[in-house]
Design a protein around this nucleic acid. Structure first.
Lengths: 226, 226
DNA sequence: ACAACGCATCTTGCATACACTAGAACGCTA
DNA sequence: TAGCGTTCTAGTGTATGCAAGATGCGTTGT
């Protein structure tokens, strides 16, 4: 019955952490809710100690926010926050592409161009899933083109967090075609080694993706959210 | 003598975390060294509980690695990775300052200028800890000046991960003075609303900090790590 | 009536004690 | 002597108790 009892091999604090993370992402623990250590401990049949350890971990991942001596609250995802995340994402992508334009070697540039070529067929066939996968490879090649392992890791992690939103925006009519055109601008700037211009193109690309998502979700909501 | 005793206002676990982070980045706790909770607790005159919390935090920021029931060991930081992290940090700071230069309102700009003014006394007094705290406020004002909560959070989180390294680099002779001069360039660009120039200044500032750290640790190593 | 102060209560932060496991050390057997 | 099983121990994981800080409310003074 209690989900924390299934895996006795895991540390108790780990099980609590996983369970709480699930509840937050699933929405049963709403943003702004305060986490009472004693209460959570009772719920899992544990003492406050492992609960504290779990909450510490969650705060490190950003799922909850801790205030010293004032407890922890679930952090929220408002529309404004999603917009903010898109802007951050845009800036990170711009940063990566700027560095990549200066540092990629001929082989890496060639691979990027090849990916862009291949994407044409997917767009023409209207295969959003394939294009989305290609999109991932496209950006990943750019990340690695920064020749900075830490930046590549962080960029990929952020992109992972945004993955759901990105895919959604591609469903707007005509978006894949324009998305690919914008990629073309980025590739062209990279080929010229113009990092600043590549960054500007990438910012525009991400901004357009954000707008597309907004329009798509707005339309979806007025249709009844089916 | 014990650096953990100077600020009774901070949480004990936080003080231990900061002290341990310092020792790791300064090299007195070498990569691979195991962290004995009891022993560390004795050293700080604390029990194992706050030590455990501190170690958990350190593992969250990647300074140590934890193996269940087998304790924590100091993670190995190759110099290349530290350089990569500093570059990422520099780019993030540049991004923030660029946005902030465009978006900060007069009150925020005023506060930033005031902080910069106040820092003069700390540099002249050679109070590295005070300057380090001011430094934090300085950058935090810039983060909030982006008017993007997500970016501000992420930037602060990254700064947390790098905090120990930053403090270390300030110990190089003459570094605080030059650090403050570089801040002056950034402030000046922000006041003019020149985001691109502010970003360039900030990149240079972070690059110099990275170099200072390299020089300091190199000197420390050849002296025998005392 | 409103504001400021002080108190009560609740929650977190820390200390201490106990339980349990992974490694090491030891002895036994082939 | 080498390999394996057992015991022992050091050190982590968890529980519980106590103290300090924060929030909310009631009281008092203006």
């Amino acid at each position: 019955m209690n989900p924390a009892e299934e895996a006795p091999s895991l540390l108790l604090s780990e099980r609590i952490r996983i369970a709480l993370a699930d509840e937050i992402t699933a929405g049963s623990l709403v943003p702004g809710a305060t986490l009472d250590e004693q209460q959570i401990g009772d719920r899992f049949g544990a003492s406050r100690t492992p609960v504290r350890e779990a909450i510490r971990q969650l705060s490190a991942v950003g799922l909850v926010e801790m205030r010293p001596r004032r407890g922890a609250v679930v952090s929220g995802f408002t529309t404004q926050r999603i917009i903010d995340m898109f802007e951050m994402s845009a800036e990170i992508e711009a940063m990566c592409v700027r560095l990549a334009a200066y540092r990629m070697n001929p082989m890496e540039r060639s691979r990027l161009a090849q990916l862009h070529e291949d994407s044409l067929a997917m767009v023409e066939a209207g295969d959003i899933d394939a294009y989305d996968r290609m999109n991932w490879s496209f950006h990943q090649v750019i990340y690695e083109g920064t020749h900075n392992a830490f930046i590549a890791e962080q960029a990929m992690a952020l992109r992972d967090r945004m993955a759901a939103f990105r895919r959604t925006q591609l469903r707007e009519t005509g978006r894949p075609v324009r998305s690919r055109e914008e990629h073309g601008d980025v590739v062209s700037a990279i080929m010229r080694g113009d990092g600043e211009e590549a960054a500007r193109c990438m910012r525009a690309h991400m901004f357009n993706a954000s707008i597309a998502l907004e329009r798509f979700t707005a339309k979806r909501e007025e249709m009844g959210g089916g």
